[in-house]
Nucleic acid binder design. Structure first.
Lengths: 166, 166
DNA sequence: GAATTTACGTCAGCCTTGTTGACTTTCCAA
DNA sequence: TTGGAAAGTCAACAAGGCTGACGTAAATTC
């Protein structure tokens, strides 16, 4: 992006008040963002943690447990509890690694893909509505600011599969 | 297939892939958004719930308990647990309502304001850095999309106190 | 003035999802 | 052969959601 004045804040008048509005916007928007999947999950025995696992396994089929740990930023005990129920319920398959047999490669089963679709359909519908209401320029800005707000490590996780056409 | 990067005039041709990136951007950015306050809170006996309470009492001094319940969207039992520790620790003062003595008007004490300052300084610093890196146009888009993503009720809470100068 | 409603507080118990610590099994690689 | 990484498991605990039930004071309504 072209940044005409990287020199300082002179162009961007950032009062505490404006920043506070941004902070609250994040708070309220994130609630909306999770509201639809949460409603679906609550009818089952699952929670947001299951959603996250299913999402990232869907995004990167065959990913390992440690990989998932790095992305989700939780302990293996915490992830394992969630993963175990998903495997037991037949939503996720954990295949022993071909090259390194210590690893477990994670895949969604047909049933798991069904849940993933249901959840992401709901979440995408809201995202799509917001994008349409805001317009293309706003969408670009939205993504730019969010990216700038991430921790460097998180940004790497995010961008790591940004062009996942490989 | 490769996703055409939505640049400029590209009308709202929203592929699932683009929406997925938006979803993940929200996930990773929200983690960054809460990371700094979380680090501060974790050294004390407080958590994110305390932060939220302190934030909104700071924003609306004298607000009532039911008001706070509506904004935070939790049960009174849940809020009360948090509020009680804040009052006990001398961060929040709960004055009996002057007009309606059933109500409790909530205020931050000097000590409470100190914590609020510490937390919001950290959060604002990150927000400010992201805003500067992204530029004014991106910031406007960011806010527009976030607003569109909120539930109508939440949006009302958000806009309800827009008045202060902005 | 009595009855009802409202605002708030609290006790008790449950769930999800995070944590730490300790231990085992498997298996790659030096 | 041995060290250590990867994964799984058990146990215990905490934060912070939730529901239900109950109590009290104050306001409102009948």
């Amino acid at each position: 992006m072209a940044d005409p004045t990287p020199s300082g804040e002179s162009l961007l008048f950032l009062t505490d008040e404006q920043l506070r509005k941004g902070i609250e916007a994040m708070f309220f928007a994130y609630r909306g963002f999770t509201a639809d999947p949460d409603r679906i999950l609550e009818t089952m025995d699952y929670g947001r943690a299951h959603h996250r696992a299913v999402h990232f396994i869907h995004r990167s089929p065959g990913t390992t447990v440690s990989n998932l740990l790095a992305i989700l930023g939780v302990t293996k005990q915490s992830l394992n509890r969630v993963l175990r129920t998903l495997v037991d319920d037949g939503l996720v398959e954990a295949r022993v690694g071909r090259k390194d047999k210590r690893e477990r490669n994670l895949y969604l089963t047909a049933k798991g893909q069904e849940l993933e679709r249901e959840l992401s359909d709901a979440q995408r519908a809201r995202m799509r509505a917001a994008y349409r209401a805001a317009g293309p320029q706003a969408v670009a800005g939205f993504r730019t600011v969010l990216e700038a707000m991430m921790d460097p490590d998180q940004r790497r996780q995010y961008q790591g599969l940004k062009e996942s056409g490989a």
